[in-house]
Amino acid sequence: MHAAAQNLRGVSPRGIRLRGQGIIEYVLIIAVIGLVIVFAGPGVAGAIRNQFNLVGNTVNNGTVGCVEGGASGGGSAGTDSATVQAAIAKDAKDWTLEEQEAVAEDIAAKDEASPAFAKAKAAIDAETKFSVKLTNGKTLEYRIIGLNHDDLADGSGKAGLTFATANDALGPQRMNATNTTVGGGEKSEIRSKMNSDEIWNLMPVELRSEMRAVTKVSNNVGVTFKPSGGAQPVTTSKTTDRLFLLSYSEIWGGESYVMSWVDGNQYEYFANGGYTNSVFGWIRTPNSPKRFYTAAPVNEDTDVEAASTVGAHAHPAFCF
Rank of each mutant, 00 (worst) to 15 (best):
K187L: 14
A45L: 07
P316C: 06
G155I: 05
V205L: 15
D94R: 05
F117G: 05
D111M: 12
E250H: 01
A104I: 09
A45W: 01
D263L: 05
E101P: 07
V262F: 04
I29V: 08
T178R: 07
I30G: 04
S76N: 09
S72V: 12
K119L: 13
L202D: 03
L246K: 02
G273A: 10
S249V: 02
G65Q: 02
N265D: 15
D80E: 13
D106S: 07
N167C: 07
G137R: 02
Y26R: 10
F292N: 02
T79A: 15
Q6S: 11
V36A: 07
P227K: 01
K121A: 13
A312Y: 05
R49Q: 11
V84K: 00
N61R: 14
Q173L: 12
M194D: 01
E186D: 13
E305D: 11
A47Q: 09
T128P: 08
Y293C: 01
N179H: 09
L245P: 00
A45D: 05
D106N: 10
L54K: 10
R174V: 13
N61P: 05
A120K: 01
A108F: 01
P233D: 03
S249I: 03
A3T: 13
E141L: 14
A3D: 06
T309I: 13
I48H: 07
A169K: 00
R9D: 09
V262H: 02
F318Y: 06
K238E: 10
A177N: 05
K121I: 04
A87F: 08
V223K: 00
T180S: 12
E189V: 08
H2N: 15
I88Q: 05
H315S: 01
V59E: 05
E255F: 13
G43M: 11
F244I: 06
G229W: 03
T236S: 12
L207D: 01
M211E: 06
G20Y: 08
K133Q: 10
E105A: 14
Q21N: 15
F244C: 08
E268W: 12
I144S: 03
A122N: 04
V279I: 09
V304I: 09
G56D: 09
D94E: 11
G253Y: 01
G41P: 11
P13C: 10
A89E: 04
R191E: 00
S131E: 12
N57T: 13
A92S: 10
H315P: 04
K119T: 13
G62N: 04
G155Q: 05
A77P: 15
V36C: 09
V217W: 01
G62P: 04
A47T: 13
T96I: 07
A47P: 08
N272R: 12
L161D: 00
V310I: 12
A120V: 08
V11M: 14
T162F: 03
F225R: 07
T58M: 11
S228Q: 09
F39T: 13
T79P: 12
L245D: 01
E101Q: 15
D150R: 01
E112R: 09
G229K: 05
W252P: 00
N195E: 04
F244W: 11
P115L: 11
